[in-house]
């Protein structure tokens, strides 16, 4: 059946493909720290983060990458954290950020 083409496209280089299965180790992180699911990308964690000030690391972006199965930089990004815990004081959704970060820094990819 013919339809109007609206010309919507995706640039293949940048696209997030949700058809891809999330790796088992990532599912495991969510299982070990289920509070990760509570994140609403409000950005409070990044607003207080001293490490982020120097390195550009933002926890909510790590979290988003994890949600979307974008794992290539996860471990490196997490390593920028110095586990001071300020973000956890600020987080309105009670995400156990430090534990999530610890799990991510210990990722052993198969």
């Amino acid at each position: 059946m013919s339809r109007i083409s609206f010309g919507y496209s995706v640039s293949e280089g940048k696209v997030i493909n949700l058809d891809q299965q999330k790796p088992a180790w990532l599912e495991k992180i969510f299982e070990l720290e289920p509070s990760l699911h509570r994140c609403i990308s409000c950005g409070n964690c990044a607003a207080v983060c001293t490490a982020g000030h120097f390195t550009g690391m933002k926890f909510y972006r790590i979290c988003l990458n994890a949600f979307r199965g974008q794992t290539s930089d996860l471990k490196n990004d997490a390593k920028a954290c110095m586990l001071c815990g300020k973000c956890q004081f600020a987080c309105p959704r009670g995400v156990n950020i430090r534990h999530a970060i610890m799990l991510m820094t210990q990722i052993q990819k198969p």
Binding site: V10, K14, V15, I16, N17, L18, D19, S41, N65, R68
Partner: peptide
């Protein structure tokens, strides 16, 4: 297809 505006990237799924 959608633009994932928080990720700042396009997104696709079947």
């Amino acid at each position: 297809k959608a633009e994932d505006t928080l990720m700042n990237r396009p997104l696709k799924q079947n």
